[in-house]
Design a protein around this nucleic acid. Structure first.
Lengths: 225, 225
DNA sequence: AATGATTTGTTAAATAACTTAACAAATTCT
DNA sequence: AGAATTTGTTAAGTTATTTAACAAATCATT
């Protein structure tokens, strides 16, 4: 699965150069030309890394970063700053940013920094204990507890639930779930997943603030009210 | 599964200190007091990392390292050298060594270097294509080919075979196989594994230079004549 | 070397995991 | 509104894995 990058750069020439370069480095790049568009995109898709220019039409990079950070505490954000901007001003704004890089920069440096983040997030073993409403889900021993009762999940059930938990209250694309849990995205894998979704719903029935919502033709969301 | 370290240090006080320290850091340490003993130990057990003092009774660290390197091209070897030894002399001997550390050293440094090796070997994805006699075994797509025919293995079968391949012509302990493939080491897992060994033998029957040899009460070895 | 205990080899039966089929219901498209 | 597609659900079918059963081999003890 390729690393998905949300790139926001209003200078379309520069934007294309960066996008092209990152694509050649094996990343999946989504280029937006203003902050508003990026925010829309961010809300509807999953990204692994965000790269924001600071001077942007409609919604500047800092404000965008704040919104993004509020919605997602994990995603690494890298700023592209003009040379003219003073370092202390940048630092002052470094609320949610993880790194920044001064224009003009060479692509190798950007790629290097992106890889640092990928390595970092790959290393931090993703949590294996989840609270889902009044349920507790332990991925390691495949246990889904609720008050006194406890259900032992199968590996596939657990894999699927884990992915949904990992992005809870966010829609996860069918395609992504299938690729990651089934390894393939075809008709039969899809039907198999629907069966599993149905099973998970049954297991989670005792807490009615929990829902697995279907987005017709797009994906599923584990929703916690 | 803990990282297994073969530590050879003739000064028993220093040896115990190092062993104790590494054990506290979560490693499984086997301390030998001379090179001969270490070599015996190495031949009969599996280790992930070797740490050799250079000045040793019976068999010095360098000679030991050469023998070890001949038998195992992968295992990281770290030398402990006396301060008095000149760097160029060490370099001259650096045939099989991966790193060396000058006495007296602080434990944090040694632990750091060990961790570097663990990370490195963990990253290099262990090969997924194996030649077993006239068979070809592709772990990724679970395929075991022989001339024209091809058998698709199950995940467990492939996991077990991969471990045996990975240490081919070396005995692998029952315990290790069970821990790594079944995750637990109890009576039933053991019997299950015996069933799988039996299956693998059947699949590999067309090349009679291949054997899966049992070492009664100890483990199995995939032997290629 | 004979005895009994333990471990292993092998086949078959039982169980569990996962997929596919079938049909109803919901959603989207025209 | 009607057709096409997607999803929800149950059940049947298939495959993977475990457990049982018994024979054979190995080991420990006498």
């Amino acid at each position: 699965m390729k690393t998905k990058i949300l790139l926001v750069e209003d200078d379309s020439n520069l934007g294309f150069v960066i996008k092209d370069n990152l694509t050649q480095n094996g990343f999946d790049v989504y280029l937006c030309e203003d902050g508003e568009m990026a925010w829309q995109n961010f809300q509807h898709n999953h990204f692994d890394i965000a790269i924001f220019d600071i001077m942007l039409p409609k919604l500047d990079g800092f404000t965008l970063a704040e919104k993004v950070r509020l919605a997602n505490k994990e995603i690494p954000i890298i700023f592209l700053t003009a040379k003219s901007m003073k370092e202390d001003k940048i630092k002052g704004f470094q609320l949610g940013a993880d790194d920044y890089i001064v224009k003009p920069f060479n692509m190798e440096e950007l790629v290097f920094r992106i890889k640092v983040f990928i390595k970092r997030t790959a290393k931090e073993p993703s949590a294996d204990l989840f609270q889902i409403g009044s349920y507790q889900f332990n991925y390691l021993n495949l246990e889904l507890r609720h008050e006194i009762s406890s259900k032992r999940l199968t590996q596939k059930e657990a894999n699927l639930l884990k992915l949904l938990c990992h992005r809870k209250n966010k829609m996860v694309k069918r395609e992504d779930l299938l690729k990651q849990v089934w390894g393939s995205n075809d008709y039969f894998a899809g039907r198999s997943m629907d069966v599993y979704i149905s099973k998970l719903r049954k297991y989670l029935i005792h807490d009615n603030s929990i829902e697995i919502i279907n987005y017709h033709g797009i994906g599923f969301m584990l929703s916690l009210k």
